[in-house]
């Protein structure tokens, strides 16, 4: 299978005052096109840090990160912005919708940055809203939506420019279990439609759907494998995940 992301000896250090803390301490990871990966691990293990680097929101302190064979470390801020705009879609735990903008306008933002023409934007947004069951919420502002609806708007927005990769950092963390299940389902469908999906989650149901689980601990990959290989440790897993 073709790889879309390749990390080699990726490290990330945060310096606060005089104290330097290594959040990632040498990550080696290969993501294939069309994979569904769940990233798990205890709090503070570096999951979000890793995700930010993979989504080009942040750059590694050292090591190599290639996205579609481009060495990300060497890209300009504008090139990084374009990757974020067209190649990856982000979904956050806190939704991160613009509060003053309607559903329609929130989904429109990435299309505006991509300079998509007005007619095409309209077509694309209508299509996405229909697909995510938000057609009747187009004119609503985030405060007028439920958590599940807000997260669906965020997913629609992440999908606006038809990225190959969807990155989600605890997308169900702020939702009740019913809405959460709905979102998990959407990710599964996206994966089935051919997208590469990487989800950070404490949520067992996502891990169950994933093809592969990457478990982080103290900035290193502890285990990296499919569910069958995870099975022996599943007892402890369930404890830590619940």
């Amino acid at each position: 299978m073709q790889s879309i992301m390749k990390l080699r000896q990726v490290r990330k250090a945060y310096t606060t005052g005089t104290v330097t803390f290594e959040a990632l301490r040498g990550i080696n990871l290969m993501v294939n096109r069309g994979e569904f990966i769940a990233v798990v691990g205890p709090s503070g293990s570096g999951k979000s840090t890793l995700m930010n680097i993979m989504g080009c929101l942040d750059i590694p302190t050292s090591g190599e990160y290639r996205f579609e064979n481009q060495l990300v470390n060497s890209l300009s801020p504008n090139q990084l912005a374009d990757i974020r705009n067209r190649k990856v879609g982000f979904v956050f735990q806190a939704f991160n919708l613009l509060p003053y903008a309607t559903t329609y306008e929130n989904v429109e933002i990435p299309l505006l940055f991509a300079k998509v023409s007005g007619r095409k934007r309209k077509q694309r947004i209508t299509e996405l809203l229909a697909r995510l069951g938000l057609a009747d919420k187009a004119a609503n502002k985030p405060t007028e939506l439920s958590g599940g609806e807000m997260q669906r708007v965020a997913i629609a927005r992440a999908l606006a420019n038809e990225p190959d990769v969807i990155l989600a950092d605890e997308p169900t963390g702020n939702l009740d279990s019913a809405s959460g299940a709905e979102i998990v389902n959407i990710f599964r469908e996206l994966w089935q439609s051919g997208k590469t999906v990487i989800v950070i989650s404490h949520d067992v149901s996502i891990a169950e759907h994933a093809e592969r689980i990457v478990r982080l601990k103290d900035g290193l990959i502890e285990t990296n494998g499919d569910l069958s290989r995870e099975q022996p440790a599943s007892g402890t897993d369930n404890q830590s995940l619940s």
Partner: peptide, 11 residues
């Protein structure tokens, strides 16, 4: 600004 940058806003 962070959100917009995540969505692909250039400087």
């Amino acid at each position: 600004i962070g959100i917009k940058m995540a969505l692909g806003a250039r400087k």
